[in-house]
Write a protein that binds this DNA or RNA. Sequence first.
RNA 1: GCGAAGGUGGCGGAAUUGGCAGACGCACCAGACUUAGGAUCUGACGCCGCAAGGCAUGAGGGUUCGAGUCCCUCCCUUCGCACCA
Length: 837
Amino acid sequence: MLESYDPRAVEREAQDFWVGRRSFEVGEDAGKPKYYCLSMFPYPSGKLHMGHVRNYTIGDVLTRYYRMRGYNVLQPMGWDAFGLPAENAAMANKVPPAKWTYDNIAYMKAQLKSLGFALDWTRELATCRPEYYKWNQWLFTRLFKKGLAYKKTGVVNWDPVDQTVLANEQVIEGRGWRTGAVVEKREIPMYFFRITHYAEDLLATLDKLPGWPEQVKLMQKNWIGKSEGVRIGFECGKEILWVFTTRADTLMGATFCAVAAEHPLAVQAAQKNPELKKFVEECRKGAVMEAELAQVEKKGMPTGLHVTHPLSGEKLPIWVANYVLMGYGEGALMAVPAHDERDLEFAHKYNLPVKQVVQHPPGDPTAHGTLINSGKYDGLGYPQAVDAIAADLAKKGLGEKQVQWRLRDWGISRQRYWGTPIPIVHCAACGDVPVPDEQLPVLLPEDVVPDGTGNPLNKRASYVDTKCPSCGKPAKRETDTMDTFVDSSWYFARFACPGQDKSMVDERARYWMPVDQYIGGIEHAILHLLYSRFFTRAMRDEGLLPGMAEPFTNLLTQGMVLAESYYRDVGSRREWINPADVSIEKDSKGKIISAKTRDGRDVVYDGIGTMSKSKNNGVDPQALIDQYGADTARFYTMFASPPTNTLEWSDESVDGSYRFLRKVWDFAYKFSRASCAASADRKIRYQIHLELKKANDDIERQKFNTVASACMKILNALEELPEWDETSREGLSILLRLLSPIAPHVTHHLWRELKFGEDVMRAPWPDPDPAALEQDEIELVVQVNGKLRGSIRVPKAADRAAIEGLAMANPNVQKFVAGQNVKKVVVVPGRLVNLVV
RNA sequence: GCGAAGGUGGCGGAAUUGGCAGACGCACCAGACUUAGGAUCUGACGCCGCAAGGCAUGAGGGUUCGAGUCCCUCCCUUCGCACCA
């Protein structure tokens, strides 16, 4: 065997071996338990980033581990290939999005292969291929016929200069990213998926997902946002203003009503009131983003209209307020300033009355309590008050209990080219007609270069002009495409069915689904995961996935990979400098005091955040692979932190990972030339098996950083052996197997070189030997008043009295208890003794 | 603003159940080997202190024989907020 570690040669050799044996291609096998391990597929942005390396290494470690544990493991890979960046690249480089995307896929596929992931490439898919998106279209037509897909108007960001719809990320501080024009809200017709049909089930089933992080389940629960309340009608002349509230108990404290600027009452009132019209129009300026809306200063204007309080008969003014959202509830609310912080802020600003009606604990006006100043309802608690008030309202026909959801239906229309065409034909006579199955897929032309002014499909007569599938007369094709979240909502099921062109999925999906382990970034905790859960239900009800509701049994949400970012302002333009090109100076506390580029110009430190193209702070993993090899890149990303933590990038510590793999090689090299004694070393063997026991626990709880450090500890222990013996051989074979899921290439090579077997991946996973873990004596820590004062060795079977005696006899312990009364002795078996004086 | 998570040496992190805080590694420091060292090996390495010892897990308070871990208040960072993926 070679004396020194050459990652390049070792990795090529191992990868050739796997390809030659088709090691990762799997089929259905009734003889083994199946394990479907899936990492979120990448958007083909150009090259892999650190988040990908981390994500796919986590999946690969699990895949290789479960294979060695005897499971039939599927780990596929594909491309989330539709999306906005391809159109942006097209505008910048005058290249069709299709070509740009396919080129990126080719490059990134080579990168993934160089990292040695155990992927079944025979199942590769790209969502921009007709054979994939055909089934988006097919399912859309099914849902459309059932009413689960439907058309209504939705609000979008409109750039008045480019005459185009903007994505939220294309709106910067309320202005269009290319034109700088103030963005307006515009209502346009769109298609929606009726995800709210499944709201109750999506919420209730969260409790049956023990393999999901509590954090994610809680976020989804809050997002779905079931609230039980009362719908209350306020008479306004001949009309009724309906509001929804979860605090009907505070109805007697309502001092005004507020409606959204888009509310029909506001629009109507604005027609006769130029000042109000101006205000309503002002509310239409700016982006649709909720985060932005929530932070704008609360503003309002009276409509001049009044409503009648349904119980007191009092006249209350109606205001238009920019903090009322048209999309939630009725787009209107009753304001109770005394018991709602936002209403209070608004009331103070505009001098509106505040009337306390609930006796609340001091300092918490929004807490439930007993009613006061509420006439006949005085003295009631929250539930009784709500019941009584709802009943009285019901008698007048002005209220009823209602369940309200925060979850909205999913708008899937995008006024963009690079996505799945929505399979609808608009016919003057027949209306919106879904494209029949035999005419699917509606093909997206691939030779288009968008220019940023609207959807280029609109300008293609050959695409738009068609015949109505229903009556055969000339008609227009829908030019909107689907949200790319549609593509990623079912790809996991499609991976089970390569080559299937007769149906969306087939019976093979019943073998592989659900995904046993899904791995991806925490940033997908809500939308992607919720949409996938919705799709699985919709497909189930279409007969495609019988009996299945939940697509992902276990979910691992990896933390984001963060890096520092730096910029400098050049005129009005902000230039972002890659951290690799910045040298920094830190003070003794580690705070950055100055940052300069290589040529000595000052740059501004902008803090730490997600690696992103816009801040140019990405670290290219390719440089890491080129310099150290794939095994080091994999080992480092596992060792650096547990998968669920954020990972703050530092290239300084990569060296240590490389050094460790080299040490493994050096040890194996020396072993290959040594002759071993037949004896074993009890003490070192104990250490190795103890580390193995902990490492096996850590793999099960997905803490791969401590598995990596267990490998280091085992090697450190082996190096302490006074001579080559059976413990060296056993320890090395354990080390190579334990390390193989993380660093598969070097362990593959050494396993064969040392004649442990032909293929480490097919070796059984090591389990600790109980005999090696047996000990006659154990060490106990002795504390006095909770402070460490010494330690004692006691026989394993020692009783309490013997332990107390030994603890008291310890000289250092004596120093602290001498002459004092020992009031209490706490003995924690196997751990410690605490003497309280 | 709302929802969620996190904060431990100079740095990444460990401590699985309330029981030895800082495993393992990086950086730094000292030494050995060497023509050389950005290689390798040995040692030291939280802070204060000559030592005994004391202090220390974002800040402040509480529960407990014992708190990084549980409870309360506050501060900071990251993620999501429905057209980025």
